[in-house]
Design a protein around this nucleic acid. Structure first.
Length: 957
RNA sequence: GCAGGGGUGGUCGAGCGGUCAAAGGCACUGGGCUCAAAACCCAGCGGGUUAGUCCCUUCGCGGGUUCGAUUCCCGUCCCCUGCACCA
């Protein structure tokens, strides 16, 4: 049988034994969940890590005696698959290639993915299979998809609950939007413009004499006091529109045709007709705040696509305006064409913002310093950035300006904006911070205002406070990210929770909307707890009254389910809740994980608040970020075929802690594979050494005499202890460091040490190795369950390894003296070898001298003093009279003072016995005869006085 | 910009007041096993020096606290992640 076949065999046995179907019982429960996948593509090794961590923990806890529930389901809600299906339907080559080549969907299956439902079905089925192939200990009876009718009933209840608590309200919101798809778009829907923000821009209304408005858009409403003119670009197509809604209703605005495309998604606008920019240039508009007449001038830097395509000029603080004004004054042809020579000559920057380190006209300083030549010079952007930043943070409104003069820019700009809006002098539009923003369908995106959007009020103060309380009582792993959570909970504002397009559950009180995916996934752990009942029930029975009773114990006569059934379901919920651990990736801290906390805080009492959250890092592939869309992934299924599930699991758990980024490097994976192979070989070697059938359930007890045997048992217990403690807090890497790598090192050392006994069927060796193996199989069972089951059954373990008891360590067997003993032996060997290396002549006999009693006293005293204080050490030693020769004491004390900070003092050890015990080994290692002296009766070269505790003196003859 | 995290040897990555020239892996070097290779085992892996020693340099950079700092404090430079309507 190949290793892959062995794995399949055990998966089948587990399934047949219903090993992971968890029902309430008298044991202590443990409920662990991990963010369920959105199955829009194949599972890769990055996902593998995400789901292996909870599995390892679940298996570990099961072995510790807990009744563990580890469920799984499919988050199929949302819009992305709609877009994917659409692109497959349109035969978009990039998408087809991605799904065929990267996600490995067979060619003949591809056409069926034109239906979004089939995409999520196809991949959730695949996920399920691959999770089985990975050996996950999931209770599949609780599997569901988020569009199952029963789940939708649950979501309806949940959201109505929040609605009734006043935590959902209606409002308006700007979103990135694709006019072609008629749907808001997220970053992953974009061809270009990922991460581009949406900015709010103030539109200031400058009225022409005929009553129409030029409507420049600006980030800097405070510079309105320095406005000298308005710019239009004669090359741009302008139109006149009538505003049909909002605070500017009835206004007639002039803007660029390109701007209209965007703004018409935010305001209801009616096109009146084209406008000839040339006819307006030269006319005057009125500064809405000061009433001053301002001329309209031509400028080429004006971008038709940005804002409104109209710009007001503030040459004192906007470098582009300053340069455009300079350019205009020099351009006789233009001045003549529009008959604006006189007025242009009179137009000068007006000091408006004062900022330390700059003159009254900061643009002049900057443009001259950067040697900007004209308005289309790319350096204009640098100048603008510099001034915007410095004036925003350190600028003040000029003293000459009434009402706002002397105020900080950062503070007053919003005041000025709000004042103008209140007075009907300004309005708001939204635009992208950068362009272009292009949808995957190829259409340019716009900013649209969704005005009957539903919001979850995560900005609500009381709710936030309660959620902070929930967070405070949770265990967060790693603890360092707690401040992140605290920050996010406060920062989160109202969340648009409804969508028009996608898969999902309809808003019960406003069915044209669907709940978006981050909203219908905040409480499903509750659903898991009872899912095994609901799957066979009639959705019609799952009314609000039912859920209120099950989750919140509220009685009602509207419950249609038989009372005893309700009771059973309710009991199960109460058994599993609260959730013990929630696991999810780092990038969900600011939304999903926080939302989960909000929802639980709102709906449940403290007794049902989640108790712990674990946050994951990302996956790298040979040092590069893993990404399906870039094709830079290894599919989990391929990895299993290549290396087996156990190797994949082991590598993922050993290469990094869960919250760190791991790096899938083939070379290291191969190394892991060899390590596991070594472990299997070790098991068979133990049987070989025993010389007869190995039965781990019947290991014969042996009283250990040799130090090295005790040492091995001590190390075993130490590693069990360390691994257990690490695993308790999800440190899978640290746990494996002990449970596999360091233990292996020690076993290597042990077998090396006892190698002359290896084929002598020494009872102690057999006992030690059998005991190691017995514990070791169980220690690794959570990580490499298939291999461990196989070894367990081969070598006589009882029942499933998955159900065996987690190894217990015996603190009393972890023996510092034994450790020190072995160190002593190793150091002697090392020292002798080193001396042999330096002195090139061969020696037949090596004498070693042990430290006399009084030096041990000295060491003890130094340890009591605790710091390298030679005076104090000598003083105390003399007082205790450890030796008559005070000079000797002083000499040794100096040495000890230095040593004491480098050695751990564990008390006196019986060096003579230890060395005698290891004499054969040492002699073989040094290839000489060894003579151990406890006194200096034979000491021709006077070496004995060098002896110190833990460090005998050496004389080579 | 705001917030959070981080800079360790050829490399990945532990350590977070003394036991640290710094765990473990990988790479590399020497040795064993073998006809040979892989695997496996032993040893070395900053520099110099030595009867097992000691010295110098080193944990981004510069200061400080301490008998003692990779570990604590201050400053400084650099890097990564998140900043939303999206799974």
């Amino acid at each position: 049988m190949t290793n892959n076949e062995i794995e399949t065999k055990w998966q089948k046995k587990w399934r047949e034994a219903k090993l992971f179907e968890s029902n309430p019982n008298e044991k202590e429960k443990l409920f662990i969940t991990v963010a369920f996948p959105y199955p829009s593509g194949a599972m890769h090794v990055g996902h593998g890590r995400t789901y292996t961590v909870p599995d390892v923990y679940a298996r570990f806890k099961r072995m510790e005696g807990y009744n563990v529930l580890f469920p799984m389901a499919w988050h199929v809600t949302g819009a992305p698959v709609i877009g994917i299906a659409d692109r497959i339907k349109r035969k978009d080559p990039w998408t087809l290639d991605l799904y065929h080549r990267v996600h490995k969907v067979p060619k003949e299956t591809l056409p069926s993915l034109e239906d979004p439902i089939n995409i999520v079905k196809y991949f959730s089925n695949e996920y399920h299979e691959v999770m089985d192939e990975m050996g996950y200990s999931i209770d599949w009876r609780r599997e569901f998809r988020t569009i199952d009718p029963t789940y939708q009933k649950f979501i309806e209840w949940q959201e109505k609950k929040l609605y009734s608590l006043g935590l959902i309200e209606q409002g308006e919101h700007p979103v990135k939007y694709c006019p072609h798809d008629e749907n808001p778009v997220g970053d992953h829907d974009l061809l270009e413009g990922e991460g581009v923000g949406v900015n709010e821009i103030t539109v200031i209304k400058f009225q022409l004499d005929d009553g129409r408005y030029l409507v420049p858009a600006t980030f800097r409403p405070e510079t309105i006091f320095g406005a000298t003119n308005v710019w239009l670009n004669p090359e741009v197509h302008y139109i006149e529109v009538e505003v049909k809604d909002g605070i500017s209703k009835g206004d007639k605005w002039i803007m660029s045709n390109d701007a209209f495309t965007n703004i018409s998604n935010q305001h209801e606008l009616e096109i009146i007709g084209d406008v000839d920019a040339k006819a307006i240039i030269g006319q005057n508009v009125k500064n809405p705040l000061t009433g001053a007449p301002l001329p309209v001038f031509p400028a080429s830097f004006v971008d038709a696509e940005y804002g409104t395509g109209v710009v007001f000029s503030e040459p004192a603080d906007a470098p582009a305006d300053y340069m455009a004004l300079q350019d205009l004054k020099k351009n006789a042809e233009l001045l003549e064409e529009y008959g604006i020579a006189d007025i242009a000559a009179k137009t000068e920057p007006i000091p408006t913002i004062t900022v330390k380190g700059y003159s009254e006209i900061p643009t002049k300083d900057v443009c001259e310093r950067l040697e900007i030549s004209n308005q289309n010079d790319p350096k204009v952007q640098d100048a603008t950035d510099e001034l915007y930043k410095i004036e925003h943070s350190k600028g003040y409104v000029h003293e000459r300006i009434e009402k706002y003069g002397g105020e900080r820019v950062a503070y007053i700009k919003d005041v000025i904006k709000d004042d103008m809006i209140a007075d009907g002098l300004a309005d708001i539009i939204y635009d992208f911070a950068e362009r272009p923003v292009i949808c995957r369908c190829g259409t340019k995106c716009v900013v649209k205002i969704m005005d009957d959007q539903w919001f979850l009020k995560y900005g609500d103060e009381e709710w936030t406070e309660k959620t902070q309380k929930l967070l405070a009582q949770e265990t967060i792993i790693p603890e360092e990210i707690r401040p992140n959570f605290e920050y996010y909970l406060d920062w989160l504002d109202n969340w648009a929770c409804s969508r028009r397009v996608g898969l999902g559950t309809r808003v019960p009180w406003d069915p044209k909307w669907l709940f978006e995916p981050l909203t219908d996934s905040t409480m499903y752990m509750s659903y898991y707890a009872i899912a095994k009942y609901l799957r066979d029930m009639d959705p019609a029975d799952l009314n609000e009254a039912f859920f209120e009773k099950v989750f919140l114990n509220k009685d009602s006569d509207e419950i249609t389910v038989p009372a005893e059934k309700v009771k059973e379901i309710q009991d199960e919920f109460n058994y599993w809740y609260p959730l013990d651990w929630r696991l999810s990736a780092k990038d969900l801290v600011g939304n999903h994980l926080s939302f989960l906390m909000f929802t639980h805080a709102a709906v449940y009492g403290e007794e049902n608040w989640p108790k712990g959250t674990v946050v994951f890092g990302m996956g790298l592939l040979e040092g590069n970020k893993m990404s399906s869309s870039k094709g830079n992934v290894i599919l989990l299924r391929d990895a299993i075929k290549e290396y087996t599930a156990d190797v994949v699991r082991l590598f993922l758990m050993a290469s990094a802690e869960p919250w760190q980024d791991f790096d899938w490097r083939e070379k290291e994976v191969r190394g892991t594979q060899r390590r596991l192979e070594w472990f299997r070989n070790f098991a068979s070697r133990v049987e070989e050494i025993k010389g007869s059938k190995l039965d781990l359930s019947k290991i014969e007890d042996v009283e250990l005499e040799r130090s090295i045997d005790k040492w091995m048992i001590s190390q075993l217990n130490l590693h069990i202890k360390e691994a257990t403690e690490a695993l308790e807090v999800f440190q899978t890497r640290q746990a494996l460091q002990h449970a596999l790598f360091l233990l292996k090192k020690d076993v290597d050392h042990y077998t090396y040490r006892i190698r002359p006994l290896i084929d002598k069927q020494d009872p102690a060796v057999i006992y030690v190795l059998s005991t190691v193996l017995d514990n070791w199989i169980r220690l690794l069972a959570p990580f490499t369950p298939h291999t461990c089951e196989e070894l367990w059954s081969t070598y006589g373990g009882e029942g499933f390894a998955s159900e065996a008891a987690w190894p217990e360590y015996d603190e009393s067997l972890i023996d510092g003296e034994i450790e020190a003993s072995e160190d002593l032996v190793q150091n002697i060997v090392k020292d002798i070898k080193e001396i042999k290396n330096i002195v090139d002549k061969e020696s037949e006999k090596v004498h070693i001298y042990l430290a006399p009693e009084w030096k041990w006293d000295l060491y003890r005293i130094a340890d009591e003093v605790g710091k390298p204080d030679v005076g104090q050490i000598i003083g105390r030693s003399i007082k205790e009279n450890i030796l008559d020769d005070k000079k000797e004491i002083a000499n040794a004390a100096k040495k000890v003072a230095r040593e004491i900070t480098k050695t751990k003092y564990i008390g006196k050890i019986d060096e003579a016995t230890i060395l005698e015990d290891a004499k054969d080994f040492i002699e073989e290692e040094i290839a000489s005869e060894l003579v151990i002296h406890t006194d200096d009766s034979y000491d021709p070269q006077n070496k004995a006085r060098n002896a110190m505790p833990y460090k005998p003196a050496i004389f080579m003859e």
